[in-house]
Amino acid sequence: MNNVNSRLRRARKTRAKIAELKVTRLCVHRSNGHIYAQIIAETGDKVLASASTLEAEVRKSLANGGNVAAAALIGKRIAEKAKKAGVTTVAFDRSGYKYHGRIKALAEAARENGLSF
């Protein structure tokens, strides 16, 4: 089993548990160059808010979308957008990625700006 399959297996287990709990989730995806975050409804069929380093406002302020500073900015933006959508409590879906570096920075920034998980 390679690293990608291991990550996807971990992600599948996490998503199954979150679906069982029927809670709104903060789903994170990262690539080498960018980071993406979405607030997904309890049913799993609707995106309530999203933020990524591909947004025009974010791209102007960042030289690189694949670092910890960019992840912290996306965490702040997703928390603000979630509050506008009326969401304050979420389950954190890290998509099987380890909780360190960019994933940790995004999560901590989201917590500091009003999301609880």
Rank of each mutant, 00 (worst) to 15 (best):
T14A: 15
K60C: 03
Q38C: 10
N5S: 13
E57T: 12
K98R: 15
L21R: 15
F117R: 09
T89M: 06
I74P: 03
L73A: 04
Y97P: 05
K104L: 02
S52P: 11
I18C: 14
S61I: 15
A85V: 10
A107L: 02
R102T: 08
A19W: 02
K76A: 12
S6A: 14
L106C: 04
N67T: 00
V87I: 15
H34D: 05
N64P: 02
G44K: 12
L115C: 10
H29C: 05
L21A: 15
R59Y: 06
A79K: 10
G44I: 09
L48Q: 07
T24Q: 05
A51G: 11
G33P: 00
K46W: 02
A11G: 13
V87Y: 00
G65H: 01
N5P: 00
K104T: 00
T88D: 10
N2M: 12
A79E: 11
I18Q: 13
A79H: 11
H100C: 03
N3T: 09
N3W: 04
A71F: 02
R15A: 09
E108H: 07
I35V: 13
K81R: 15
L73F: 04
N2T: 13
K83E: 12
A91Q: 10
Y36E: 05
K46L: 12
N67R: 04
A107C: 09
E108P: 02
R94S: 01
E112D: 13
A19L: 08
R111Q: 10
H100K: 08
G96I: 09
T53P: 03
A105F: 04
R7A: 01
T89D: 13
T53C: 07
A82Q: 06
N64L: 05
T88M: 08
G96E: 05
S95Q: 12
S52T: 12
A49N: 11
N5I: 12
R94E: 01
Y97L: 03
R25K: 15
K83C: 10
K76M: 08
E112L: 13
A19G: 01
V23Y: 03
A72S: 15
T14S: 14
R94I: 07
T43S: 14
S50T: 11
T14D: 08
K104N: 00
T24L: 07
L62P: 01
A63L: 11
A105I: 03
G96L: 06
A63W: 01
T88K: 13
G33Y: 01
M1P: 00
T43Y: 00
H29R: 14
K83H: 14
G65W: 01
A41F: 05
A79F: 06
A72Y: 02
E80H: 10
A105H: 04
V58A: 10
K22R: 15
L21E: 15
L54E: 12
D45G: 15
D45N: 15
T53E: 00
N3G: 04
A91P: 12
F92S: 06
L54H: 03
K104V: 00
L21Y: 05
A79L: 11
G65L: 02
E20P: 08
A56D: 14
R59W: 02
F117T: 09
M1V: 10
